[in-house]
Design a protein around this nucleic acid. Structure first.
Lengths: 314, 314
DNA sequence: GCGATCATTGCTCATCTGAGCAGATGGCTC
DNA sequence: GAGCCATCTGCTCAGATGAGCAATGATCGC
């Protein structure tokens, strides 16, 4: 397009979008036919001079969602807009809200829903509305009686989600990671735990988040791992954890021995499940999000715009 | 609007603006009539959820221009968009470009144009296109043979503007500020200077910028004033200078003695002139811009979006 | 419970707008 | 300078959209 046409297209856009003039009226002002004005406006759009943003906490980015689905093979992708977001906390809250919306609109409604725990899922549980589903059995899929007392523990998340669905919660009453393998095996052999794990393995759908591998991890917070241990995992290639298990960028378990001492369903069970919803948001989680998506650990991803764009850049 | 309607309006907006669906198609997806969809979209706009920005160096903000005209009584206001601008320099360049555009489209074309000098006007002179007007006599309206050698001096600005209009430049060959009043009076009495000043007083239009009152001022740069003097002026209420004369927020001369030693047309001559174009941009110039506009020192203001909004906040 | 009032809904109609097409325009080659 | 190709322009026509209006439904005071 010529230089003067470009300038004209900007003048036309000002009159059209800011002054709400019709293309006809603009034509009179700029001494052009209305068809020329229409073409100028189209070219302004095509050149990216017109930026339309939906500024709202619940806004999603459908084009990015589509590109994500196409490029990754996800069955579904939910991408929340980061327009007008100032803090990472706000972004995570928006994403949790979107996950809650997605769960609510899910059809068919899963009879049993396996969930992990953490700050993100706790946030999702808070955003769900009372009666979001008519009865769902929520099953905890990895251990996690928090060692310290804070809101957002595994139990409260599961109970809240189940309660709001007028359903029941089945808790996994044991730590996330045992110090000794024998204790863990003994625990798993116990009927109460084995029954929950069996239920967890047969859940119709899974909802989980993922943590980045750093000192802020919920597993460190809860006292299961030390910062030193995390640093060691990172040195060995860990990008983050999924259901308490640390994986590298290729989706492989970083420390098999540690993995053995971790209670909960295996990564491979997620990989085989038909409906696994990952909720991962925030700038620090790009790496783990990439590992989860690239290695088929989820079929549905709920995330934020920036993380999604990072995934698309591959 | 109800909460669910608000959410629906966002969903509709996503489909309409990001996916280019028709309101009819959206109606099918959201199980609404197309009229409902239209109303939802209208309400999303009315609530400010839809933000449309024109991202282009030449983009202007017509609604802000209109509000400025209405609230200040300016005969014209040109406001350049600051969308996508990263530096103050870029903003000033855009504004200079807009001023050049305004000059070019000015009708009737002024036979004599009085101009001040400074970085901004130099920038304007560079953005003018060869042949922007068919002959204009450009007259310098305040003294300013720069004491050091840099591009952007008073003379080169006037000559460039005149040259590009295939016109002539009349320079005011004397300093901006004299140290002694007697020298200044003697100079003004000289035919060569007096003639230029008479021409300057009778210009059909004026084009000038304004400087903020701080150490970055062009008058300090050029060696006419020291930083200490500026600080003193600021302490006495100065917000900036217009054609070399420092004024306070009420448009009054801050230091009459200094003013007497300053060569050029008086502030009051600007106030009386029928067409005075002020070009003022940048975050540091909000105060002086306010002083210029509120006190009727210009009839046309060319500025940036942020400065304009600052003016509107009064 | 009942009417009055006000917001909401579905509709008609006029206007606005984009797709597609034929003719005009303007370089470019030979 | 003739002819050709690509681009641009103005147009028709159909689809998309907003304004305005009557019907419907909700809400409130009595």
């Amino acid at each position: 397009m010529s230089d003067t046409d470009e300038l004209l297209s900007i003048r036309a856009a000002e009159l059209y979008y800011e002054e709400n003039q019709t293309q006809d009226e603009i034509g009179v002002i700029l001494r052009l036919t209305r068809w020329k004005v229409g073409r100028l406006l189209a070219s302004a759009k095509a050149n990216g001079f017109i930026r339309i943003e939906i500024v709202h906490p619940r806004a999603r980015r459908l084009p990015i969602e589509r590109r994500l689905r196409e490029s990754t093979g996800l069955t579904d992708a939910i991408v929340v807009s980061s327009a007008g977001v100032s803090s990472d906390a706000e972004l995570q809250s928006r994403t949790a809200q979107a996950a809650a919306d997605y769960l609510t609109s899910l059809r068919p409604i899963p009879r049993t829903l396996g969930i992990s725990w953490g700050r993100t899922l706790h946030d999702v549980s808070l955003h769900l509305k009372q009666g979001w589903a008519p009865g769902v059995n929520v099953v905890q899929i990895n251990g996690g009686v928090s060692l310290n007392q804070r809101p957002g523990t595994a139990a409260s998340t599961a109970v809240t989600i189940a309660h709001k669905a007028d359903g029941s919660a089945t808790l996994l009453p044991c730590p996330a990671i045992f110090e000794r393998l024998e204790t863990k095996q003994a625990m798993e052999a116990d009927r109460s735990v084995a029954g929950v794990l069996a239920l967890a393995r047969n859940a119709q759908a899974y909802l989980f988040s993922a943590g980045q591998a750093d000192a802020d991890s919920a597993l460190v917070d809860s006292g299961y791992l030390t910062v030193d241990q995390i640093n060691d995992l990172v040195a060995r290639g860990a990008v983050g954890d999924v259901v308490g298990r640390y994986i590298d960028r290729n989706g492989r378990i970083v420390d098999p021995e540690l993995n053995e001492r971790t209670v909960g369903i295996q990564i491979d069970q997620l990989r085989r499940a038909p409906l696994t919803i990952a909720v991962i948001a925030g700038n620090s989680k790009h790496a783990i999000a990439r590992a989860v998506v690239r290695n088929g650990l989820c079929t549905v991803l709920v995330t934020d715009e920036d993380t999604a764009n990072a995934l698309l850049e591959d």
